[in-house]
Design a protein around this nucleic acid. Structure first.
Lengths: 237, 237
DNA sequence: GGCCGTCTGTGCGATAGGACACGTATCGCC
DNA sequence: GGCGATACGTGTCCTATCGCACAGACGGCC
């Protein structure tokens, strides 16, 4: 867990930081800090949420769990976004689980306060909707990537998406957990990660992955990464 | 092309039909009929849309086209929904193409009229947002299904989703086109469809597929279909 | 009625990834 | 310093799907 003093600095969340001063100051008193441990379940499939979360240093994955126990990630949210779109989209719940993929901090807001702010229809609403559209693109591109691309490319995409959401070049994450995210076997991740390590792009040991050559990863990744990244930049840049 | 006299009956679109009388009557004068041919491109990736479309009898697929020419469907919209969420979500464009998957009618509304109506914040806004959440679930479940399920199950899912959006038991659709939607080879569709035909669930010939045993398809499909269907019912039921 | 284009069926080798089994290395802890 | 748990590596076999090639089969059109 980062001991960084500004782990809960609300401006570390880029959505909150993008708010006009007036709205930001109106919202600030309603934000409370939360600390997330690796693997913690932020939100359980189908259950009513009490809060919306704006990660500051944490990363949260949206996973679907199949009846047979298999799982696959459909999207992730870090300091560029939020967890809990269903609260303002009107559905209140979603059929997937949100799990902490990288330990860290977040700030949260009560559901009712969020709905009231959203209903005011100002910059906050516009920002939340634009973020939701970016998330839509991330999820749909995940669908395409799952269908058409090899594990190695998907691993690159996943590493880059995670790296974008962290200050550090180190990801604390076992191959087993990555396999659950990507919806593949652990051995498949071992093989793909081994090839990336041979190429000098990453190094890893016992649950700690170092990103050594970000440029190299960007060359090895499929086009899906750029599509998603560009769309986030366009919508929220 | 259906010659049905009420192809452009706006109440055939379930979103429009769900509006309270007052809003419905305010919106009605702004809706104009459109006729879609099979394969027509409703919307091109990254291009500014002029209209939002509410299908009445048509079905539209959202496809991503890769740089190498391959494609995969990320979602579909028929009389339960609309095409053009980006217009009210604030992004104006999306990085995918919308193609007519089943010929038929739709009604459309100019972008600016839509934005004005959306900004009023009434039942229309709530309905559009709930629909968008349902679409989010459809896309994310497509991602999961692409990762974890076999072609045959995905074909069942696709057939059921299409069948839900049609009056008829006949789908006009070649195996080649289905393959492009599912992001697999045509031969893979041939094989899967052959097995479904052997089981008496469908019959097909030269681009015309008959759904013979809907219940049987619902048994053969993966859980993804039900997740999406239930979520649509919950959000828009 | 014959021809041609479209749609579907089939065969075969190549390959990625899954299932299972087991070996090995590293870390933390007593 | 030994021990157990955790994390990673490897091998073998199996299946689904791909890539390609080509063959039938049906429908529309002259």
């Amino acid at each position: 867990m980062p001991t960084n003093t500004d782990t809960f600095d609300t401006t570390r969340n880029r959505l909150l930081a993008a708010l006009p001063r007036e709205e930001y100051e109106r919202i600030l008193p309603h934000l409370g800090p939360v600390c997330f441990k690796l693997g913690e379940v932020v939100y359980e499939s189908g259950v009513q949420m009490e809060h919306i979360y704006f990660p500051t240093t944490a990363i949260v994955s949206l996973l679907y769990l199949m009846e047979n126990g298999a799982s696959a990630e459909m999207g992730m949210a870090g300091n560029e976004g939020l967890v809990g779109v269903a609260l303002f989209m009107g559905g209140n719940t979603m059929p997937n689980r949100a799990v902490v993929q990288s330990a860290g901090g977040a700030v949260r807001m009560r559901a009712q306060v969020l709905r009231d702010e959203f209903a005011r229809g100002g910059a906050f609403q516009r920002l939340l909707l634009r973020y939701t559209q970016a998330l839509l693109t991330q999820m749909s591109q995940t669908a395409v990537c799952n269908r058409l691309h090899a594990i190695e490319q998907q691993l690159c995409r996943w590493l880059l998406l995670s790296h974008d959401r962290l200050d550090s070049d180190e990801l604390v994450m076992t191959q087993e957990l990555i396999a659950n995210m990507l919806g593949v076997r652990r051995e498949g991740v071992t093989a793909a990660a081994g090839r990336l390590q041979e190429q000098g792009l990453i190094s890893y040991a016992r649950g700690r992955i170092q990103v050594l050559d970000r440029r190299g990863l960007e060359v090895a990744v499929c086009e899906c990464y750029k599509v998603v990244k560009d769309e986030y930049a366009r919508l929220l840049g």
